[in-house]
Nucleic acid binder design. Structure first.
Length: 433
RNA sequence: GGGGAGUUACCCAAGCGGUCAACGGGGUCAGACUGUAAAUCUGAUGGCUUUGCCUUCGCAGGUUCGAAUCCUGCACUCCCCA
């Protein structure tokens, strides 16, 4: 019988282990290929965000090591709300919202897990399941007798997620308090149904994971294992994937591929190095050489570029990466010529656009000053004038120094669109119909 | 109830009869520098049909050739005494 690559060692080498149950037992169980390992995703929104990437990548690594990843979507647990890592009670989601969220999350998980890793196509070896499927029809009384009876209250009260909330003013509801029982039962169910004996998750999941392990021992006398990985934070202490403008989502409709790409490009050196290790599948030697390159020529930003490329390709595919790169060229000054409107619209997805009648370009054309004001790039025509005088006015990324400049059909970058810019990074799309 | 101080552009704040669209600081915007970071430096910062015009200095009147600046009334804010 073949022996699977040492997954645990891989995790450790990449700084992905925060806590784990007995490493020796874990290693032994994982030595046989084809083991099933699970991670859960609660459908709190219709898209996952950057914070979920660690767990998704963990599952891919599981697959790459010859095992079978199991992604559990929390259709049932999402009904209740996980108190872990939360300072306040969650609002309940309506069943409709939840259904939409599950659909969105399911699609993303499948896309990312199905994509070929170093192990090749994973079709047939990836399990995506919804815990509502086994939870929905369990009656409350049954649950209390079969599950609740085997969980000592002292154990539940001892969990950080509960303790920290009880010490706060808001406390927590019975509903959220019960959350860990549901997740614990998931683990036991998966052990029964799929012989899945390892659960992985973020460090805030340790309490929920051990609750499952404990339940498995009491109920089945079986050995379950758990691994948590450190929460990914940035050097400034903020959570990875959060920006002033909100979370970085995986859904291109929420966060354009360009902005997704830029998020990684803009990381500082240390954060980028850590992400390379934890979020990509680049071989360790390659990461080491990028570390050296970064130390030698930090300005080249090779780490950030590589990181952004890897992750954008994973989440948005080759096309998404191509668009993001094209958008990057454009946003950093490349003059815009002969590009079709569809591409422009896609590249400038995050940028405000204004409509003008096509006839505005005829004759003398439209004063640039007016266009800048109308698109909101300048608060008044005076401000627009000032911007141009100071060298901050651009049409299709070409600097316009003439305050009296008028836009005519010559200035269209696409069939009916042109790109206005004020200063370094404020863009607006002007469409003429 | 009595006495005093104040209300200026996004914020703070100077100005106390003409040279005031109004000093200075913060913020913001633009430029340079730079690693798409931070810091730094420079310029701009009421509106417009911009060598000029129009509207702003709590609100409403008044004095004056001329008011943010003087007078009257009103509103609001703060401080001290009761």
């Amino acid at each position: 019988m073949s022996v699977a690559p040492d997954l645990l060692a891989e995790f450790e080498a990449r700084g992905l282990v925060h806590q784990s149950t007995d490493p020796a037992a874990l290693r032994e169980w994982l030595a046989t290929p084809g083991r099933r390992v699970y991670a859960g995703f609660d459908p709190t929104a219709d898209s996952l965000h950057v914070g979920h990437l660690v767990a998704l990548m963990l599952l891919r690594r599981v697959a790459a090591a010859g095992h079978e990843p199991v992604a559990v979507i929390g259709g049932a647990t999402g009904m209740v709300g996980d108190p872990s890592g939360r300072s306040e009670e969650r609002n309940l989601l309506s069943p409709e919202e939840l259904a939409a969220n599950i659909a969105g999350v399911d699609r993303q998980i499948r896309t990312i897990l199905a994509a070929a890793g170093p192990a090749g196509p994973l079709a047939g070896r990836v399990h995506v399941v919804d815990n509502a499927d086994w939870m929905r029809d369990v009656g409350y009384l049954t649950f209390l007798r079969d599950v609740g009876k085997h969980v000592p209250l002292a154990q539940m009260l001892g969990k950080d997620s509960v303790k920290s909330r009880l010490e706060r003013d808001g406390g927590l509801s019975y509903t959220e308090f019960s959350y860990m029982l549901l997740q614990a039962w998931d683990f036991v169910h998966l052990a029964d149904a799929l012989d899945c004996r390892v659960q992985i998750g973020g460090s805030d999941q340790w309490g929920n994971i051990t609750a499952g392990i404990e339940l498995g021992r009491r109920l089945r006398g079986c050995d379950l294992h758990g691994i948590t990985c450190p929460l990914l934070t940035k050097a400034d202490g903020t959570k990875m994937g959060k920006t002033a403008a909100g979370a970085i989502w995986l859904d291109p409709a929420r966060t354009s591929p360009y902005r997704f790409y830029q998020y990684w490009i803009n990381l500082n050196d240390d954060d980028a190095g850590r992400c390379l290790l934890r979020l990509t599948e680049l071989p360790l030697e390659e990461i080491r050489s990028l570390d050296e390159a970064r130390a030698a020529t930090p300005a080249a930003r090779e780490t950030q570029k590589r990181l952004a490329a890897e992750l954008t390709r994973l989440v948005h595919g080759e096309e998404g990466l191509a668009v993001a790169r094209q958008a990057t060229d454009i946003f950093f000054g490349a003059e815009i010529t002969a590009i079709d409107d569809a591409a422009l619209t896609e590249i400038f997805a995050d940028v405000p656009s204004s409509e003008f009648p096509r006839s505005a370009l005829d004759g003398d054309g439209l004063a640039l000053v007016e266009a800048l004001e109308a698109t909101g790039l300048a608060k008044s025509k005076g401000a627009a004038r000032r911007t141009i005088e100071q060298g901050g006015g651009y049409v299709n990324n070409r600097r316009v120094a003439d305050v009296a400049y008028r836009l005519t059909p010559r200035d269209l970058a696409g069939a009916a669109t042109l790109v206005l810019r004020s200063g370094k990074k404020s863009y607006a799309l002007a469409r003429f119909r």
